Simulated assay, not measured.
Amino acid sequence: MTLSAPSARAVDLRVEPVNNILDHVERALQVHLDRDTMVRKRRSVGARTDRRTWVRVERRGLDKIGVQGWNGTECAARLEGIAQPVWRGCVVWQDADEPVMWRADETELLPSAPIGNAILSEDPKLEDAWWQAFNSSLDVLAAQDTRRVATPDTVTVTQALVTEAVRGIAPTADFDTTVERWVPAHADLNWANMTAPTFSLFDWEDWGNAPRGLDSASLWGSSLAVPALADRVRHERRHDFESRDGKLMTLFACSKILGPDAHPKDPRLEPARRMADQVIAELQAG
């Protein structure tokens, strides 16, 4: 019999009081956090330190921590040839009152500012050198070897998950949804997790093996409100998008945009639907 962890209450760290948590981190890491530099996200809080590093604190329910643990940033430190902040150390503890774990990772500062929000509404006008560094890191990542499994949005990516997502937007389509190639992926690739003008990729909590093209399709989906940018992503990562797995991952990304929680005024809806129809036709044609 498999025992499941109790579910944690939903919390948004953008509004939840976090001073006690940050105090705990300061004592554990023996560092001072500059609260004026604090960046608050739904699942994490980050701040600059007095030793010119960055600390990212994440809250995760025990039910969202699988057998591989949740030490993605630590494990990513061994990856070679990828532009990412150097990892310095961490502290992890279990909440005394809830079925929750907290984790604080300390890394070197980013070389440049994050590009923007996860979903962009205007073109960041990235230089060719940026795209070259971006492609290099993604290609090197895909060539690595790991036993980790990607957990995009803290959900373990499996064949069943892919099939469910694809069938959700192509319920009557006649093609096989079986993934042929699984490769290491960042699994949270969006414009909030990369820097410019100097390229760097950060927030490695969810990386691991995933269907080829997951990262490329995720970034494309985050770019659809800026058609020229979405086209550039497809051009730069065309070897992913032209593969069969890449087409499945395009549908996977479209399913997140076109799902039941879609906002009717999301500018990505129409281009996502057009692309989904095109890819479905290509897969059916073999």
Rank of each mutant, 00 (worst) to 15 (best):
E122R: 11
P99K: 03
D105E: 12
D123C: 04
A142N: 03
A142F: 01
E122W: 05
E106W: 13
P111K: 00
T107L: 11
P114S: 11
W131Y: 06
N135F: 06
P111E: 00
Q132L: 13
E122Q: 10
A118E: 07
D139L: 13
W131K: 02
M101P: 07
I115Q: 05
A118G: 05
P124E: 09
L138K: 10
E122H: 14
P111Q: 00
I119V: 15
W130A: 08
V100C: 06
D105I: 03
K125D: 03
K125I: 08
W102Y: 14
L110H: 00
A113F: 03
L110V: 01
E108L: 09
E122G: 01
S137Q: 11
D123K: 02
M101R: 15
R103H: 14
L126S: 07
S136I: 06
E106F: 12
D128E: 06
W130M: 05
D105V: 04
N135S: 12
S136V: 07
S136T: 12
L120A: 04
E106N: 04
W130I: 07
L141W: 12
S112W: 04
M101C: 14
S136E: 08
I119T: 12
S137P: 15
D128V: 03
P124A: 01
A133W: 12
W102G: 06
G116C: 05
A104F: 05
L120M: 03
D139N: 15
L110W: 08
L120Q: 13
A129M: 01
E122V: 00
R103K: 15
D139P: 06
K125H: 11
A133S: 14
G116E: 12
D139G: 09
F134A: 05
S137H: 11
A113Y: 07
K125R: 12
A104S: 10
A104K: 13
W102N: 07
L138V: 04
E106A: 00
N135Q: 12
L109K: 03
T107R: 15
L109R: 09
L141T: 03
W131N: 01
T107D: 04
W130H: 08
P99C: 03
N117K: 14
L141Y: 11
I119F: 15
P111W: 04
P124Q: 09
D128P: 04
A104G: 10
G116A: 04
D139E: 14
F134N: 03
V140A: 11
E108I: 10
E106H: 13
N135P: 01
